[in-house]
Design a protein around this nucleic acid. Sequence first.
RNA 1: GCCGGAGUGGCGGAACUGGUAGACGCAGCGGACUUAAACUCCGCGGCCCGCGAGGGCGUCAGGGUUCGAAUCCCUGCUCCGGCACCA
Length: 849
Amino acid sequence: MSAAERTRIDRYEPATIEPRWQRRWAELDLYETDLTDESRPKYYLLTMYPYTSGNLHIGHWYAKSPTDAIARFHRMNGENVFLPIGFDAFGLPAENAAIKNKIHPRQWTLSNIENMRRQLRSMGATFAWKSEVVTCDPDYYRWNQWIFLRFLEAGLAYRASSPVDWCPNDGTLAREQVEGADRHCWRCGMRVVKRELDQWYLRTTNYADELLDFSAIEWPESVRIMQTNWIGRSEGAEVAFTTEPDESRPGGDELRVFTTRPDTLYGATFMVLAPEHALVPKLTHSHRKAEVEAYVAAAGRETEIERMSTERPKTGVFTGSYAVNPVNGERIPIWIADYVLAGYGTGAIMAVPAHDERDFEFARKFGLPIRRVIAGPEVTDAEVAAPMETAFVSHGTEERMVNSGPYTGLPAKEGFASIVAMLEKQGKGKASVNYRLRDWLISRQRYWGTPIPVVYCDSDGIVPVPDDQLPVRLPEKVDYAGRGDNPLKSDAAFVNTTCPRCGGQARRETDTMDTFIDSSWYWFRYLSPSDSNAPVDRKVEARWCPVDQYTGGAEHAVMHLLYARFFTKAMADLGLVHEREPFKRLFNQGQILGADGERMSKSRGNVQDPDELVSRFGADAVRLFLMFMGPWDQGGPWSPTGIGGISRFLNRVWYAALDPHGVDAGDAESGMLPAGQDRAAGERALRTAAHRTLRIVSEEYAKMRFNTMVAHLMELSNLLQRYRGTAAAGTKAWNEAIRLMLLMLAPCAPHIAEELWSRLAEARGEAWSSIHTQAWPAVDEAAATENEREVPVQVNGKLRDRVMVPVGIGEAELERLVLARPKVVTALDGKAPLKVIHAGGKLVNIVVR
RNA sequence: GCCGGAGUGGCGGAACUGGUAGACGCAGCGGACUUAAACUCCGCGGCCCGCGAGGGCGUCAGGGUUCGAAUCCCUGCUCCGGCACCA
């Protein structure tokens, strides 16, 4: 097609058509969901709401374009789709910006939201904007407070003093918000230190076992494994040792330990207590006092990083006391060492150096005895007696017990059970389960979050703020005064209040809630965003929950996704909701990295701005390109080089739809039907291709395989291109193929599909009705079936020929045909076939010797 | 160290449940159109040998199972994600 001819019809100009349709769709409320509509099945689709950083980057588009395509696909398939959007609007960056630019966090956040709304709209996505929630809105966070008060009443929230992870920027952190071997803050990267503080906790550990049960949800295995590991359930036993009396002390104190290896109890040669263990002062012998106190003090000063490093050699000191092993009455020394953690189990262990690597290292260093009590099936008596070079940790049905009194000779697994039973009988222990999971520390020492709704009264202690006084609002005027400190603390008008119980003077809690509280129930709020009676409308929730499909990044596997499950279960137990799982299906999309393969960040200067791409190529091209890049769960480095190919594809669709008879200049063949084809054959080929594509594409939308879905649309477009300008163009079959192409394109490239749809309707003189309200087309199976098929022919597994055969051909017939092929005859080289394999009509393999 | 996942052309990637490796696209090359360029269109394209027909090799490496392996099994290497002394 020459330039002159091309101007005969309008060019494809995304910059003019896209905003026009976006406006039109919004005017028509095309994507607002009627939550009361019960005539169609519901489909609750949720994408993780963005943090209000101010700008969307290409990663947001990568996450949200396919999500929007899913929404549109399901809507076309007759479901009532709800795809809400909102903003995660509390958090430290707002405060940092406030300090730096002297702008109020609220103002910073709200203006960022304005910009992000504009950017999100430019995607042309089907978000139900009228259901939007913004978490820094008092109408939202008052329900954080309300739910917190219900948790408090139910004993699910409590205040406790313990050593906590403290980040100089973010204040205290939950356990899962501290990352890496160097123990840094997940958000700002600062190293954390330990501090002893009074803080608020939520009892996530109450739900440890239920959180391990994933039977009601379909989540990626990797996430389930991560959560399982994070919860870290260990089955074992608690064993009571008793302290020995000596010349200065009476003894008789009970020292309980947790062990996962009761089968090794005869191998315990010493005990180790965490330096913080309550019995340490009492057990310290007078002549060891100085040394022990110095060690405890040093351990207290150390940062977590030093203490937790596995590289560091073991340290510890002897207390001077001894304990008695309940199974054999043996007297073993009690040590303290910082490799034993105060916060896990009982804060004390029995050390079995022969069968635990850490205890082994410690015993070696301090010359403590190492006694083997478990041996593998091949180990001889002589070897059992020989000194050990490493700890032997395996214990299954193969391994047997040695040096274990009456248990000697038993398989380790049996010994485990027998010893636990014996301990229980004698009252010296019991089977016990421990979890790595800790309760969720939610207190944060900063301004821009939800105030924790309690006051402290000198006479009444901790008093919850009554419901009718909610929300406890953040004061508008904030004085940062240049300190990194929480400005609420120095805000007298906020802090000083009266006790709701006695009316006397009281102080408000100045800590605010972890922002993960906000995201732990936000999808419930989307269902009734302005309900002023309850956080969740149970009627609507009953119909719409759980979320059918949740999409978002894998980085939230053990934080947000675990908190959300905990909240849902706790809220269900409080009768606030019906469902015990928040998200039925989860999909983790991959992450888009910078062109350098590194995480996109302003400081690296590798951030791709989507606005710029949209103005150059159009939203449809950007969306399609992101979907085409590769599997959605894979992500990868950003490279814009391929986007031109997508533009070309959309252009070809444009001209095929509007100008079927146009022929582009090319070689002499163009504009002619393929050799041997008449118009009818061309039409048949078009119909077959269109319906086969529809069959595959429908499946790929459902399976979220967008990259191959786009590839198949391109194949169909290439075929249309071949017939464009031929006698088959503009025929009924051609128009059908175009129609199917537009319908298939509609979920992923909504603007161009709508534009062409409306132009074609106009050309036919029909009234417009949006392509996005059309039903997904049905495959014409008769058209999609071909009557000939190509069968590859192998000789000894090597491809030698291909034959076209009628579809229903019998094996004998096919075999005769194949053996007569010249290429096959040559390949056989006169040898007689030993065996002929028909792989279900898909392939023929002739085996010769 | 432990637990996951992945290694396929110059690049992104495709290949159903063991059955034609490299779909689709990018970059590249040749051609048409153009005064010219861009755009657009037609064609070529794993590597090696060959004018060609064709042949040999080829999915991280090495071994195995099978008529047949990118796909299954064993051993090793590399990369990515998670965990960080949890007794």
